[in-house]
């Protein structure tokens, strides 16, 4: 019997290694270890030679007191960028698209949703390239061809004159589609009888949206708000590609600033210190997002007890 138990334990261990081993290894290597490394590097003066000489809190003092670009330009820009994109596109426009595409004929709705998914589904470099064409300040630019050629407006330079507005547009056209998809499926899952009942009770289109649809999708809506705040806070890919943070630092958001300090200026220690703030925010928000998941269902116990 004792041999049997030992054999069972060995098999259990082997199962664990076979099934879960690869995942744990990868997750440790590129999630857990980087967090530890990042915490450590944040307290060093690591430069472009990738070596460090001293351990101190110098980086954090620099962030708080000495880095005027960070405190006077980058942080306000980040704030306006995140708030603007979130409020206008990711939540509001995503919601509007979901409401409108579910109100028209199903096939047409799917067609327009597919169009709005196009930017999300194309590679970031291509998407950025299209924007570069659109905003070219000469009469080659698409925007100017329409505004100037069609409506006779003067040539505009979006990047030069309204750079924050530009990066909000660039990210917003992608951000709106996530809200659109999640909310569309949330709206679809509202029992049809509720809509029927409301119409019979005398509600018109707008009342139905206000009293039936919106209350029913408030969970997904708050999920999107929290999740997208985090995504926007850490994202810099499109900004990097379209404006490269310019002109000057006018569109350099926090995450892009971190990246440039580390990889362009070789200040890895300082970059890691600033990244640590994002890592902490990321963990806190990720913990918050738990509330949106149906833990009970996820945690159901296995029903086969032998291994």
């Amino acid at each position: 019997m004792a041999g049997n138990i030992r054999a069972t334990q060995a098999r259990q261990r082997a199962n664990f290694v076979i099934f879960l081993g690869p995942a744990i290894l990868l997750l440790f290597l590129f999630y857990v270890a980087p967090v530890i490394v990042n915490i450590f590097i944040a307290f060093t003066d690591m430069g472009s030679d990738l070596k460090w000489t001293e351990i101190s809190t110098e980086n954090f003092e620099r962030m708080a007191r000495k880095d005027r670009i960070l405190t006077h330009t980058v942080i306000p820009v980040t704030f306006f960028f995140v708030l603007g994109t979130l409020a206008v596109f990711n939540v509001t426009f995503g919601l509007i698209l979901a409401l409108v595409t579910t109100s028209v004929q199903a096939r047409s709705g799917a067609f327009f949703r597919a169009i709005w998914l196009l930017p999300r589904m194309s590679p970031s470099v291509v998407y950025a390239l299209l924007w570069a064409w659109v905003i070219t300040p000469t009469d080659y630019g698409l925007l100017n061809q329409v505004a100037n050629g069609l409506f006779g407006l003067p040539l505009t330079d979006l990047m030069g004159n309204n750079p924050v507005f530009l990066i909000i547009l660039v990210n917003g056209f992608i951000g709106a589609s996530l809200g659109m998809i999640i909310l569309t499926s949330a709206i679809r899952s509202i029992p049809e009888h509720l809509f029927h009942a409301a119409r019979v009770d005398g509600a018109g289109g707008w009342s139905i949206v206000r009293h039936i649809t919106l209350p029913a999708i408030r969970w997904p809506l708050s999920f999107i708000t929290v999740y997208q705040t985090l995504s926007l806070l850490v994202s810099f890919e499109y900004i990097w590609l379209v404006t490269d943070g310019g002109p000057f630092y006018d569109t350099t958001v926090y995450a892009l600033y971190v990246y440039k300090r580390a990889f362009f200026d070789g200040q890895y220690g300082y970059g890691a210190a600033m990244a640590l703030v994002l890592v902490i925010v990321g963990i806190v928000v990720a913990l918050m997002l738990w509330r949106f998941l149906d833990m009970q269902r996820l945690m159901q116990e296995p029903r086969i007890e032998v291994n």
Binding site: H193, H196, A197, H211
Partner: peptide
């Protein structure tokens, strides 16, 4: 109207 599922909000 009263539905089978009652359709209460």
């Amino acid at each position: 109207i009263v539905f089978q599922s009652y359709a209460l909000y």
